[in-house]
Write a protein that binds this DNA or RNA. Structure first.
Lengths: 377, 377
DNA sequence: ATTCCGTGTGAATCTATAC
DNA sequence: CGTATAGATTCACACGGAA
């Protein structure tokens, strides 16, 4: 359907970076989120986490099978006249968010089917570039008491950069480590916020939609660095601030309900930062000091003249003193030569080439790991 | 934020039903989906399943680490000039879909983050009432080869009625039975379409985005009755038709690509109404829940900074914020670090590492068991 | 017959840096 | 701006042939 002209493949462009203005962080701004964001300078925030009103449009009371009444969200701040008025509100706060976010910063927004499609479309309309949609699969959702629909067992988060060419932070290795050495997927199973973690005031929940700290923990660990400034324009009871403090990030919260503010300030004051050794995370390979193949030769982990082979022993290459390889008259880097021999456009030489030990072939990547363990802080 | 006037709780109104016009079903309409839908009378369809183009906006070629090229969707039918042109297309086919759908009929649309937010907003704008968003969690998604984002491991389906007061069909008990007597949730784990089920032409896949029959099976079983008419305006290779025939539903498909039409017609001709052996294939094995070590850290079952030891107290490791461990300058996952320290090729960190409680060492696997007991549905 | 291993592949917005 | 080069990167499952 709807055939259009072919779109030419896009190329990455570097984003020109002006120095980010210094702002005061680790504080709670009291007031309307749009007005308060408007007071902040351009490009001063590294990451925004936003949990806006969902515009739930619930009907009357809902009762459980055993008779209890469901304590639903019925706050004024979640009420909008029409879809259009919700859209105008969304567009207004997203425009401010985009302005104060650094060029290479990213934004997260969480929502449910009531609002997330409108938020996602608005993000794209504003020029944000969606990086992932993330499904928070609730381990323990509320059942559908009436048996009228599927149990609504998840919420959706959208993660977006300022544009297609932005150089956003993604702590790939940290996420992989967190997930037992498998790539972190777009679906996250986490329990809802309850028990000790759920904040109470006078015996009832302090906020109707408090998010679990585990969710913010994963979000923040994935796309920020220690010291980064995280802004939450719908601060509520301050989950974002508490996790930021714990993880050694700076935070700014915006909230206008005095009840929530009071709870948030107490909570963050009590939050304990992790110490440095606990905070250290697996650095991404890109941030790691790169180990050149030649370094392994220089430092004696591999002798010039050693013979490397691919896993099927189709090709044998000789290691030369400068860290290049030779196969017959072909020479080049471990990557380049592997690609050339296979006729492939690219090749990861670290896993392509092997060295023989006791009759068995081991990828040379294991040498690099050994080197890193011995030589990295 | 954005307080608006209170909205009065809405009450359910019965929808007045005119007799549905009789139409000819179990046939494939050749042509553009909007033009073909326009030829159908008002209110003649019980359920619509739509798998529209996703408007992927892919860049250049993508290569796998070992050198192979990813066979991506590059068909003309997925190309649109701008977001606006995609929106116009979406609005046009949704308007027709709404007209031909019975007042108590429902519509399903599937998509990814590239298009689903625009589709969802358009559905709401047209007056459809969203009943659920459903997450298809792929058991076996394609990895993110470059390590630049979270693995895109799901697609989203939206299920909607004609309006808030429509009396739609939901086979609650059938869904509960299908899910081992637990309410069916909004997240479905199903494998992608491959193996014998994946249709081929001349040795290559007949359609780049063939959906698994298990997905259509669950959709159709949940919200249609035997004999209902199901329409698929983006028929492709006819998964919807094949499953409808199997489940004793009537179907109408719209497709304009002759190659897809040919494959679909063959396939549906061969499809057999459901028998027990076919049912067995449809049943998806429930997956063993996996818990990553990092989840225990995120959820507070284990604090960053805690000390773990092997059973003989030869090594002590510190837990870090991302779920990795540190012993002196060595760091890694519970498995990797256990292996490195012992000089072994592999190690089960769950049984290797222990935590001390009241002077006694307990394997961290017991923490995992505790977590599972508390958080599994 | 059963297990093991190698290979292929799936709706994917998939690099960074120097010159 | 564009081009060239160095360097980094994958999970689950199906299938077929070998052991």
């Amino acid at each position: 359907m709807g055939v259009m002209e072919r779109v030419a493949p896009r190329r990455k462009k570097a984003v020109a970076l002006a120095p980010a203005p210094a702002i005061e962080a680790n504080r709670l701004l009291r007031g309307d989120c749009i007005a308060e964001m408007a007071k902040l300078p351009d490009g001063c925030i590294d990451m925004i986490f936003a949990d806006p009103p969902y515009n739930l449009q619930l009907g009357g009371d809902l009762f459980r099978p055993e008779g209890g009444r469901v304590d639903a969200v019925d706050n004024d701040w979640d009420k909008f006249d029409t879809l259009s008025s919700y859209d105008r509100f969304t567009k207004a706060w997203l425009a401010q968010a985009r302005r104060i976010l650094k060029p290479n910063g990213t934004i997260w927004v969480i929502g449910s089917y009531h609002n997330i499609f409108r938020v996602g479309a608005a993000l794209q309309d504003e020029g944000f570039w969606i990086l992932n949609d993330i499904i928070w699969r609730k381990a323990n959702p509320m059942p559908n008491f009436k048996g009228t629909r599927f149990t609504n067992a998840h919420e959706t988060l959208i993660w977006a950069s300022q544009g297609e060419d932005a150089k956003y932070t993604f702590n790939y290795k940290a996420m992989k480590t967190l997930n037992d050495e498998l790539q972190m997927r777009s679906d996250w199973v986490l329990p809802i916020c309850g028990g000790q973690e759920r904040l109470k005031r006078n015996g009832t929940k302090a906020h109707p939609t408090q998010k679990p700290e585990s969710l913010l923990y994963r979000v923040m660990l994935s796309c920020t660095k220690p010291g980064d400034i995280v802004l939450d324009p719908f601060f509520g009871t301050g989950t974002t601030g508490a996790v930021a403090k714990r993880l050694g990030r700076q935070w700014i919260g915006i909230e206008r309900e005095p009840d929530y503010i009071e709870v948030a300030e107490e909570r963050i004051a009590e939050a304990l930062p992790l110490d440095e050794s606990a905070l250290a995370i697996m650095q991404t390979a890109r941030q790691q000091p790169k180990v050149a193949f030649g370094t392994l030769v220089e430092t004696g982990y591999l002798q010039p003249g050693s013979v490397l082979m691919d896993s099927k022993r189709r090709w044998s290459a000789t290691v030369r003193a400068d860290g290049s390889l030779a196969v017959g008259s072909d020479t080049g880097s471990i990557h380049k030569l592997g690609a050339t021999l296979q006729g492939a456009p690219s090749c990861n030489g670290w896993t392509f080439w092997h060295i023989e030990k006791a009759g068995k072939l081991h990828p040379i990547d294991t040498l690099r790991q050994t080197y890193l363990l011995a030589n990295e802080p």
